[in-house]
Design a protein around this nucleic acid. Structure first.
Lengths: 255, 255
DNA sequence: GGTTGTGAAAAAATTCACAGCG
DNA sequence: CGCTGTGAATTTTTTCACAACC
């Protein structure tokens, strides 16, 4: 889960479990693909496969939304697209601002998945005066001095932070002060926000680290060559439960 | 949770719960920051705050790794950094390739968080011949024709896919055929892989959709104005559990 | 006194398995 | 029959709360 919330576990979602909410976008994407291929109906089995989950979970998830299927038949694709979109709030227009127009900010600005889902990039904001006026993805970058007025003039409630780590918290504070209540944070920092503000984070390296963990386990099914630990320090070790039973650093990976 | 696995729930982690594994990188990041400030020890309470979780959870997580703390004192920062790094497999060098050097691929290539965590960008690969040879983040882009040889020559086991959605599955197939066993997928598609290959996905728009869901809930605490649904289709509705109890699309957001 | 480590309790999420309906 | 919707069972994750230990 490359996510995380600071404060409040978010409005506790009127009954829909958080885990289900997190999967709705997945279903929506799969359904949209079917819709584009003009597939009229789909069974839980098929849709589950397309979304990469199992069908029991999918049916359970949908059961929290209502009874939108037809027994013996499946789900009407268009209808379900609408219901999920509505549930996710994507039937309305969400103006978002992206702060920090480096490589990542530019990638986000160009990312088609936003526009197609009810999100509208209302403004790109960067602290570098040299960027001001330069168009990225067809939108001129504005200087951060204007942050507050941009938020207010456009009624922006969702902000995306793609700045370096050091700038993230100050930017976050300004966004919140200006009225933003949801923040998507790409900077590798934990943001502190007041109650009532949601933060989700995407940390590009976290996912890679989780992969490394599993990768190591695949490779290290045998090796137990002990490489010396870099000298603890203050607290010394004695307990027997100290080191996990499996080896460490297998030297190379299998071709 | 911007994540997901296709096939195998991954080697079931020799006892360490998946939820814990997913938090280790978080702890590591917080610890690294403390280490840079030369803080020698930290309590579960402090570290938990820095990582954005609660302290009971953190202690429980650490308990799966072993008894690395000192009662009445806390945890030795350096020692814990090492233990977590080792557990995650970050004490070894992981060569990775990034396929698809658009905005996002470039952002990833430039992302400092990789190098600092044991990941080494072994190659950048793009299908566009015009890109070949151009350096991005100091690394010359190579043409996809070379994909297989690059993987093999560098012993790459982790691949990052940052191509457009349509190219993702073919690229994935080639990566896997060439020996890659872990894939981080940024393309908005579900990848199909054989058993033994791990896939994690990061979908930039999914997180935003989850935020929209909560945002909608905050705003829509009152409104119940019904906007007409866009005509179901095949299966018609009749059940009483049809529509969720709360309204839909609140018009605008609060300034 | 302060803080960890962890059983035990509680809550959440997943899976099973099948009744019920089309 | 086929497939949904869902209670019940199971598994996983989180939280509590306190004994053990420095």
């Amino acid at each position: 889960m490359a996510t995380g919330r600071t404060h409040r576990p978010a409005t506790r979602s009127r009954g829909i479990p958080e885990a289900t909410v997190a999967r709705l976008p997945l279903y929506l994407r799969a359904l949209t693909a079917l819709s584009e291929r003009s597939v009229p109906t789909v069974s839980s089995e098929e849709l589950a496969a397309a979304a990469g989950v199992n069908s029991a979970k999918l049916r359970k998830d949908f059961s929290y939304l209502g009874s939108y299927g037809t027994r013996g038949v499946g789900y009407d694709v268009e209808y379900l697209v609408y219901q999920i979109s509505r549930e996710l709030g994507l039937t309305q227009d969400w103006p978002v601002v992206i702060v920090g127009i480096g490589n990542l900010g530019a990638a986000l600005a160009n990312y088609g998945g936003f526009a197609s889902r009810g999100f509208r990039v209302a403004a790109l904001i960067d602290a570098d005066p040299a960027m001001a006026g330069k168009p990225v993805a067809g939108i001129p970058v504005q200087h951060s001095d204007e942050l507050e007025s941009i938020i207010q003039d456009n009624g922006v409630s969702i902000g995306v932070i793609a700045t370096p780590a050091g700038a993230a918290q100050p930017v976050c504070d300004r966004l919140v002060a200006a009225g933003v209540t949801s923040i998507l944070n790409f900077a590798p920092t934990v943001l502190t926000v007041p109650d009532g503000v949601d933060v989700r984070k995407v940390d590009l390296s976290i996912e890679l680290q989780i992969l490394a963990f599993h990768e190591q386990r695949k490779a290290g099914e045998e090796a137990t060559a002990r490489t010396s630990a870099p000298a603890p320090a203050a607290a010394r070790r004695d307990s027997a439960t100290d080191q996990g039973p499996d080896g460490d650093v297998p030297a190379v990976m299998p071709a």
